[in-house]
Design a protein around this nucleic acid. Structure first.
Length: 396
DNA sequence: AGTCCACCGGAAAACATGGCAA
DNA sequence: TTGCCATGTTTTCCGGTGGACT
């Protein structure tokens, strides 16, 4: 199918600079906020109402958004706040916002600095005390004199790492302010997270809360359809494909992000193959590729001993079909010598096996073999074996 | 009916690491 | 920098267990 008449075009296409599949790949990126958010009307309205009241000079409410991953929390928060900023002058309010993902921005200093930066404040990368930034932020707020909305995404990560001090401070910022006001929107996908908070923080942040339910397959379809129309060139993808993606993602607790990933990767695969239509086969490959990627990631981030244990399991399972803790431990000790390392205890290895089980890399079940004792029966999913083998290849 | 294997898995002590205040 | 505390990891210790075997 390759015509040699335009080599440049061919190279550009291979590099993804010219695409016959994508019109605008950005639209499928997880951070993209579309012009409308289907099936989140209720949440949008509620959030907007809460914030508008704050803007009118009442004591601002803080809002807590929670729901599983890919249920649209971040998108709704950004969407509403952006719209409000656009309309702010119309109802005579000064309005600005800060968005901080506290998983990526993971120290108190950086969080405060980036909040302050959204007010146009210049804060050095390092060198100031945290309390100094706080002071500067307050004074900037006071002289600016409007409503500042602070979106803290994935706060569960931050609080687990650094405790809730900053949260507490931020929530009480209003007491140090004369004219300006601050509203905090907290976002988390850990539903139990609230219970770990200091009661004062909890009551203050949870004044208003909005729960996000997972999308079902129909809703996912609408969402995907909307994005697909922008992302793909006309005629590249048809509804049956989109609906297949939606169905696949709906099986995994209705995660819209996963669904969009699936769509994007499917497109990329089609592109790599040089065809100009996305098929069911591409989606299946994409699903596999995403799955494989997850396995690679989780294995790559494993400490050495865990890898050795996994490798031992792999070798035994491929030759015998299953493994027991004793087998694994013997093989593991052998490997450990080969690397001239001190082996861990069997007790520990037993825990590591359970850990690998929870990660979904292996299947371990305690069984009694009667006269031959109690042990974990360790098996692996057939389709994982080649992937895991590949991921562990560097251990020889 | 009783034994006994080959581990399991809880508890706690020992050790390692890392952040933080002084 | 130092010392302290918290947290996470690993070892030590040990009672417990289901069922094949006698």
């Amino acid at each position: 199918m390759s015509s040699t008449h335009d080599v440049i075009e061919e190279i550009l296409r291979k590099r993804g600079l010219v695409s016959r599949i994508f019109a605008n790949r950005e639209v499928l990126h997880p951070d993209y906020v579309p012009d409308s958010l289907p099936h989140r009307e209720r949440e949008i309205t509620k959030l907007a109402e809460i914030l508008v009241i704050s803007a009118k000079g009442e004591r601002p409410s803080n809002v807590f958004l929670y729901g599983l991953t890919g249920t649209g929390k971040t998108a709704v928060a950004k969407y509403v706040v952006k719209k409000l900023v656009e309309k702010a002058s119309a109802f005579g309010v000064r309005l600005n916002y800060a968005y901080v993902n506290t998983r990526k921005v993971d120290t108190a200093y950086k969080v405060l600095a980036s909040i302050a930066a959204s007010l146009g404040l210049k804060v050095p990368h390092t060198g100031l005390a945290v309390s100094e930034i706080y002071r500067r932020y307050i004074s900037a707020l006071n002289s600016w004199n409007g409503l500042h909305i602070v979106i803290l995404d994935e706060i569960d990560f931050f609080v687990k790492k650094h405790g809730d001090d900053i949260l507490y401070k931020l929530l009480r910022v209003n007491e140090d302010l004369s004219n300006a006001r601050v509203s905090v929107i907290g976002i988390t996908n850990d539903l139990n997270f609230v219970e770990e908070l200091d009661p004062r923080v909890r009551s203050s942040l949870g004044e208003e809360e909005i729960v996000f339910q997972p999308y079902n397959a129909d809703q996912l379809f609408t969402i995907l359809k909307q994005r697909a129309e922008l992302a793909f060139k006309p005629g590249v993808i048809d509804d049956s494909i989109i609906s297949y993606c939606a169905a696949l993602a709906a099986r995994e607790h209705g995660d819209a992000r996963r669904a969009l990933d699936l769509l994007r990767v499917s497109g990329e695969i089609a592109e790599r193959e040089g065809v100009d239509k996305v098929t069911i086969e591409h989606v299946k490959k994409a699903s596999l590729e995403i799955e494989e990627n997850k396995i690679y990631q989780s294995i790559a981030s494993l400490p050495l001993h865990q890898k050795l244990v996994l490798k031992s399991i792999l070798e035994i399972v491929t030759s015998k079909g299953y493994a027991s803790t004793g087998d694994v431990y013997a093989k593991y000790v052998e490997k450990t010598r080969h690397f001239s390392l001190e082996p861990l205890t069997m007790r520990r290895v037993s825990d590591i096996i359970s850990q690998l089980d929870m990660m979904g890399l292996i299947m371990a079940e305690v069984t009694s073999r009667g006269r031959y004792g109690v042990t974990k029966m360790i098996k692996m999913r057939e389709d994982f074996i080649p992937i895991i083998e590949k991921a562990l290849r560097d251990l020889d």
